[in-house]
Amino acid sequence: MLQLVDFIARNRFFLVFVLLEIFSGWLIVRSNSYWGATYFNTSNYYVAKTLAFSNSAREYTRLGEINSDLANENARLNALVATLSQKNAKDAPVGYVPDSAFNARFTYKVAKVVDNETNRTNNYITIDKGSADGIEPDMGVISATGVVGKVRFCSKNYSIVTSILHPQFMVSSKLIRSNEIGTAKWPGKDPNFVDMVDVSRYTKVYKGDSAVTSNVNAVFPPGIMVGKVKSVTVHPDQTFYNIVLELATDFRNLSYVYVVKNRQLGEQETLKQRLGDRR
Protein backbone atom coordinates (compact mmCIF):
# COMPACT_ATOMS: atom_id res chain seq x y z
CA MET A 1 0.00 0.00 0.00
CA LEU A 2 2.82 2.39 0.92
CA GLN A 3 4.50 1.60 -2.40
CA LEU A 4 1.31 2.53 -4.28
CA VAL A 5 1.04 5.85 -2.40
CA ASP A 6 4.70 6.51 -3.07
CA PHE A 7 4.24 5.78 -6.80
CA ILE A 8 1.27 8.18 -7.05
CA ALA A 9 3.19 10.86 -5.16
CA ARG A 10 6.24 10.58 -7.43
CA ASN A 11 4.16 10.58 -10.65
CA ARG A 12 1.34 12.90 -9.59
CA PHE A 13 2.00 15.48 -12.32
CA PHE A 14 2.06 12.87 -15.08
CA LEU A 15 -1.12 11.23 -13.77
CA VAL A 16 -2.90 14.58 -13.60
CA PHE A 17 -1.79 15.26 -17.20
CA VAL A 18 -3.20 11.90 -18.37
CA LEU A 19 -6.50 12.51 -16.58
CA LEU A 20 -6.82 15.97 -18.14
CA GLU A 21 -6.10 14.53 -21.60
CA ILE A 22 -8.82 11.93 -21.13
CA PHE A 23 -11.24 14.56 -19.85
CA SER A 24 -10.45 16.82 -22.83
CA GLY A 25 -11.03 13.99 -25.27
CA TRP A 26 -14.35 13.21 -23.59
CA LEU A 27 -15.43 16.87 -23.89
CA ILE A 28 -14.51 16.93 -27.60
CA VAL A 29 -16.49 13.77 -28.28
CA ARG A 30 -19.50 15.02 -26.32
CA SER A 31 -19.58 18.49 -27.89
CA ASN A 32 -18.66 17.71 -31.51
CA SER A 33 -20.90 15.40 -33.57
CA TYR A 34 -18.19 14.59 -36.14
CA TRP A 35 -15.61 13.49 -33.58
CA GLY A 36 -18.32 11.70 -31.63
CA ALA A 37 -19.31 9.63 -34.64
CA THR A 38 -15.66 8.94 -35.47
CA TYR A 39 -14.97 7.80 -31.92
CA PHE A 40 -17.93 5.43 -31.79
CA ASN A 41 -17.22 3.97 -35.22
CA THR A 42 -13.57 3.38 -34.32
CA SER A 43 -14.39 1.92 -30.92
CA ASN A 44 -17.01 -0.40 -32.43
CA TYR A 45 -14.49 -1.60 -35.00
CA TYR A 46 -11.89 -2.55 -32.42
CA VAL A 47 -14.47 -4.06 -30.09
CA ALA A 48 -15.71 -6.24 -32.98
CA LYS A 49 -12.13 -7.26 -33.78
CA THR A 50 -11.51 -8.17 -30.15
CA LEU A 51 -14.70 -10.24 -29.97
CA ALA A 52 -13.85 -12.02 -33.23
CA PHE A 53 -10.39 -12.90 -31.90
CA SER A 54 -11.90 -14.11 -28.63
CA ASN A 55 -14.44 -16.31 -30.46
CA SER A 56 -11.71 -17.73 -32.72
CA ALA A 57 -9.58 -18.62 -29.71
CA ARG A 58 -12.57 -20.25 -27.99
CA GLU A 59 -13.43 -22.27 -31.14
CA TYR A 60 -9.81 -23.37 -31.52
CA THR A 61 -9.79 -24.84 -28.02
CA ARG A 62 -12.95 -26.83 -28.97
CA LEU A 63 -11.59 -28.27 -32.25
CA GLY A 64 -11.14 -31.73 -30.71
CA GLU A 65 -14.75 -31.78 -29.55
CA ILE A 66 -15.99 -30.44 -32.90
CA ASN A 67 -14.01 -33.07 -34.85
CA SER A 68 -15.37 -35.82 -32.62
CA ASP A 69 -18.95 -34.62 -33.19
CA LEU A 70 -18.38 -34.50 -36.96
CA ALA A 71 -16.91 -38.01 -36.92
CA ASN A 72 -19.97 -39.34 -35.08
CA GLU A 73 -22.26 -37.60 -37.55
CA ASN A 74 -20.31 -39.11 -40.45
CA ALA A 75 -20.71 -42.56 -38.92
CA ARG A 76 -24.47 -42.07 -38.78
CA LEU A 77 -24.56 -40.84 -42.39
CA ASN A 78 -22.38 -43.75 -43.58
CA ALA A 79 -24.85 -46.21 -42.10
CA LEU A 80 -27.73 -44.37 -43.77
CA VAL A 81 -25.97 -44.27 -47.16
CA ALA A 82 -25.16 -47.99 -46.97
CA THR A 83 -28.79 -48.80 -46.19
CA LEU A 84 -30.15 -46.63 -49.02
CA SER A 85 -27.61 -47.94 -51.56
CA GLN A 86 -28.62 -51.53 -50.80
CA LYS A 87 -32.30 -50.68 -50.99
CA ASN A 88 -31.93 -48.83 -54.31
CA ALA A 89 -29.23 -50.90 -56.02
CA LYS A 90 -29.16 -50.01 -59.73
CA ASP A 91 -27.81 -53.38 -60.84
CA ALA A 92 -30.47 -55.41 -59.01
CA PRO A 93 -32.84 -57.33 -61.29
CA VAL A 94 -36.49 -56.39 -61.51
CA GLY A 95 -38.46 -57.95 -58.69
CA TYR A 96 -35.54 -58.35 -56.28
CA VAL A 97 -36.33 -56.72 -52.93
CA PRO A 98 -33.69 -57.18 -50.18
CA ASP A 99 -35.10 -57.46 -46.66
CA SER A 100 -34.58 -54.71 -44.09
CA ALA A 101 -32.09 -56.77 -42.05
CA PHE A 102 -29.84 -57.13 -45.12
CA ASN A 103 -30.11 -53.42 -45.90
CA ALA A 104 -29.06 -52.38 -42.40
CA ARG A 105 -26.46 -55.09 -41.75
CA PHE A 106 -23.55 -52.62 -41.54
CA THR A 107 -22.97 -50.48 -38.45
CA TYR A 108 -20.18 -47.99 -37.78
CA LYS A 109 -18.16 -47.02 -34.72
CA VAL A 110 -15.87 -43.99 -34.60
CA ALA A 111 -12.25 -44.47 -33.48
CA LYS A 112 -9.25 -42.18 -33.25
CA VAL A 113 -5.91 -43.10 -34.82
CA VAL A 114 -3.17 -43.15 -32.17
CA ASP A 115 -0.37 -44.66 -34.28
CA ASN A 116 0.02 -44.93 -38.03
CA GLU A 117 2.71 -46.49 -40.22
CA THR A 118 3.14 -45.64 -43.91
CA ASN A 119 6.82 -46.24 -44.73
CA ARG A 120 7.28 -49.89 -43.77
CA THR A 121 6.89 -53.00 -45.90
CA ASN A 122 4.02 -54.19 -43.66
CA ASN A 123 2.10 -51.20 -42.32
CA TYR A 124 -0.29 -51.21 -39.36
CA ILE A 125 -2.53 -48.64 -37.67
CA THR A 126 -3.44 -48.46 -33.97
CA ILE A 127 -6.85 -47.10 -32.93
CA ASP A 128 -8.22 -46.21 -29.50
CA LYS A 129 -11.14 -48.67 -29.52
CA GLY A 130 -10.96 -52.32 -28.52
CA SER A 131 -12.99 -55.30 -27.35
CA ALA A 132 -14.59 -53.22 -24.60
CA ASP A 133 -16.15 -51.11 -27.38
CA GLY A 134 -17.40 -54.10 -29.37
CA ILE A 135 -14.47 -54.18 -31.82
CA GLU A 136 -13.53 -57.62 -33.12
CA PRO A 137 -10.85 -59.00 -35.48
CA ASP A 138 -11.69 -58.97 -39.21
CA MET A 139 -13.93 -55.90 -39.00
CA GLY A 140 -13.42 -53.43 -41.84
CA VAL A 141 -12.01 -49.95 -41.25
CA ILE A 142 -12.71 -46.94 -43.46
CA SER A 143 -12.10 -43.19 -43.34
CA ALA A 144 -14.28 -40.32 -44.45
CA THR A 145 -12.68 -40.64 -47.90
CA GLY A 146 -12.20 -44.37 -48.46
CA VAL A 147 -10.95 -47.82 -47.44
CA VAL A 148 -8.32 -47.98 -44.67
CA GLY A 149 -7.87 -51.64 -43.71
CA LYS A 150 -9.11 -54.47 -41.50
CA VAL A 151 -8.87 -55.10 -37.75
CA ARG A 152 -6.28 -57.77 -36.94
CA PHE A 153 -5.84 -57.81 -33.14
CA CYS A 154 -7.81 -56.31 -30.25
CA SER A 155 -7.02 -55.58 -26.62
CA LYS A 156 -9.54 -54.17 -24.18
CA ASN A 157 -9.03 -50.54 -25.23
CA TYR A 158 -7.00 -50.66 -28.47
CA SER A 159 -6.97 -52.43 -31.82
CA ILE A 160 -4.32 -53.08 -34.45
CA VAL A 161 -5.50 -52.56 -38.03
CA THR A 162 -3.85 -54.12 -41.06
CA SER A 163 -3.55 -51.14 -43.39
CA ILE A 164 -4.33 -51.33 -47.08
CA LEU A 165 -0.61 -50.46 -47.29
CA HIS A 166 0.20 -54.09 -46.49
CA PRO A 167 1.03 -56.64 -49.24
CA GLN A 168 -1.27 -59.27 -47.71
CA PHE A 169 -4.33 -57.00 -47.59
CA MET A 170 -6.65 -57.26 -50.58
CA VAL A 171 -10.08 -55.79 -51.20
CA SER A 172 -12.56 -56.65 -53.94
CA SER A 173 -13.09 -53.49 -56.01
CA LYS A 174 -15.28 -52.41 -58.90
CA LEU A 175 -14.64 -49.81 -61.59
CA ILE A 176 -17.65 -47.50 -61.81
CA ARG A 177 -17.71 -46.81 -65.56
CA SER A 178 -16.74 -50.22 -66.90
CA ASN A 179 -18.46 -52.12 -64.07
CA GLU A 180 -15.52 -54.55 -63.96
CA ILE A 181 -14.52 -56.23 -60.69
CA GLY A 182 -10.91 -56.81 -59.66
CA THR A 183 -8.73 -56.88 -56.56
CA ALA A 184 -6.89 -53.88 -55.09
CA LYS A 185 -3.59 -54.68 -53.40
CA TRP A 186 -0.50 -52.69 -52.44
CA PRO A 187 2.73 -53.56 -54.28
CA GLY A 188 4.82 -52.34 -51.32
CA LYS A 189 6.17 -49.13 -52.82
CA ASP A 190 4.47 -45.72 -52.80
CA PRO A 191 1.88 -45.19 -49.98
CA ASN A 192 -0.26 -43.17 -52.39
CA PHE A 193 -0.87 -45.91 -54.96
CA VAL A 194 -2.13 -49.50 -55.12
CA ASP A 195 -2.50 -51.96 -57.98
CA MET A 196 -5.80 -53.30 -59.25
CA VAL A 197 -5.40 -56.79 -60.69
CA ASP A 198 -7.55 -59.39 -62.44
CA VAL A 199 -9.36 -56.92 -64.71
CA SER A 200 -9.73 -58.38 -68.20
CA ARG A 201 -7.95 -56.58 -71.03
CA TYR A 202 -10.97 -57.20 -73.25
CA THR A 203 -13.02 -54.54 -71.50
CA LYS A 204 -12.63 -50.76 -71.67
CA VAL A 205 -10.93 -49.12 -68.67
CA TYR A 206 -10.94 -45.33 -68.38
CA LYS A 207 -8.20 -43.24 -66.82
CA GLY A 208 -9.68 -41.26 -63.92
CA ASP A 209 -12.43 -43.83 -63.31
CA SER A 210 -13.32 -44.46 -59.66
CA ALA A 211 -12.73 -47.82 -58.01
CA VAL A 212 -15.07 -48.65 -55.12
CA THR A 213 -15.68 -51.69 -52.93
CA SER A 214 -17.76 -54.24 -54.80
CA ASN A 215 -20.87 -56.13 -53.77
CA VAL A 216 -18.74 -59.29 -53.53
CA ASN A 217 -17.51 -58.26 -50.11
CA ALA A 218 -18.57 -59.29 -46.61
CA VAL A 219 -16.26 -56.90 -44.73
CA PHE A 220 -16.93 -53.55 -46.41
CA PRO A 221 -20.20 -52.03 -47.60
CA PRO A 222 -20.38 -51.70 -51.39
CA GLY A 223 -19.53 -48.31 -52.87
CA ILE A 224 -16.75 -47.24 -50.48
CA MET A 225 -14.02 -45.41 -52.41
CA VAL A 226 -10.73 -47.20 -52.92
CA GLY A 227 -9.10 -44.86 -55.42
CA LYS A 228 -9.03 -43.49 -58.96
CA VAL A 229 -7.37 -44.99 -62.01
CA LYS A 230 -3.99 -43.31 -62.42
CA SER A 231 -2.61 -45.40 -65.26
CA VAL A 232 -3.59 -48.40 -67.41
CA THR A 233 -1.09 -50.58 -69.26
CA VAL A 234 -1.16 -54.03 -70.80
CA HIS A 235 1.48 -56.24 -72.39
CA PRO A 236 0.69 -58.17 -75.60
CA ASP A 237 1.07 -61.54 -73.90
CA GLN A 238 -1.09 -60.65 -70.87
CA THR A 239 -4.76 -61.40 -70.27
CA PHE A 240 -5.26 -58.72 -67.62
CA TYR A 241 -4.58 -55.00 -67.35
CA ASN A 242 -1.89 -53.47 -65.15
CA ILE A 243 -3.96 -50.80 -63.39
CA VAL A 244 -2.56 -48.34 -60.86
CA LEU A 245 -5.02 -46.63 -58.49
CA GLU A 246 -4.33 -43.40 -56.65
CA LEU A 247 -5.68 -44.03 -53.16
CA ALA A 248 -8.66 -41.98 -51.99
CA THR A 249 -7.40 -41.99 -48.39
CA ASP A 250 -4.45 -39.82 -47.38
CA PHE A 251 -2.77 -42.17 -44.90
CA ARG A 252 -0.26 -39.58 -43.73
CA ASN A 253 -3.07 -37.43 -42.32
CA LEU A 254 -5.42 -40.01 -40.81
CA SER A 255 -7.11 -38.75 -37.66
CA TYR A 256 -10.49 -40.48 -37.25
CA VAL A 257 -11.65 -43.77 -38.79
CA TYR A 258 -14.85 -45.83 -38.78
CA VAL A 259 -14.86 -49.47 -37.80
CA VAL A 260 -17.45 -51.34 -39.88
CA LYS A 261 -19.37 -54.27 -38.44
CA ASN A 262 -21.32 -56.65 -40.65
CA ARG A 263 -23.97 -57.98 -38.28
CA GLN A 264 -24.64 -60.91 -40.64
CA LEU A 265 -20.99 -61.89 -41.12
CA GLY A 266 -21.17 -64.68 -38.54
CA GLU A 267 -24.10 -66.25 -40.33
CA GLN A 268 -22.30 -66.06 -43.67
CA GLU A 269 -19.12 -67.60 -42.27
CA THR A 270 -21.09 -70.41 -40.57
CA LEU A 271 -22.68 -71.38 -43.90
CA LYS A 272 -19.30 -71.35 -45.64
CA GLN A 273 -17.88 -73.58 -42.92
CA ARG A 274 -20.74 -76.07 -43.31
CA LEU A 275 -20.14 -76.12 -47.05
CA GLY A 276 -16.44 -76.76 -46.51
CA ASP A 277 -17.16 -79.64 -44.12
CA ARG A 278 -19.33 -81.40 -46.72
CA ARG A 279 -16.90 -81.14 -49.62
Rank of each mutant, 00 (worst) to 15 (best):
M225P: 14
A92D: 15
T239W: 13
R12I: 06
S172N: 14
G134H: 04
G227D: 15
K185E: 02
G134A: 05
D190Q: 05
N122R: 13
V47D: 03
P187D: 12
S54Y: 00
A132E: 06
N74A: 14
Y124G: 02
L15S: 01
F13M: 05
E136K: 10
P93A: 04
V260P: 12
F17E: 09
A211T: 15
N157S: 08
S173V: 12
N253H: 10
F251D: 12
C154D: 11
V219W: 01
T183G: 03
K174A: 13
N44W: 03
D190T: 07
I125A: 11
M170R: 15
D115P: 00
L15E: 02
G188Q: 00
V234C: 03
L77Q: 15
Q238F: 15
D128L: 13
V260K: 10
D69S: 04
V199L: 11
N44L: 06
A101T: 07
Q86T: 01
S24N: 08
T203V: 09
T233K: 08
Y46W: 13
Q268I: 08
W35D: 01
F40P: 00
I127Q: 13
L265W: 03
W26Y: 04
Q238Y: 13
S56Y: 03
K49P: 02
D198Q: 12
R274M: 08
I142Q: 12
N119L: 07
S33T: 05
N122T: 07
S214W: 01
D250M: 15
I66V: 06
K204Q: 11
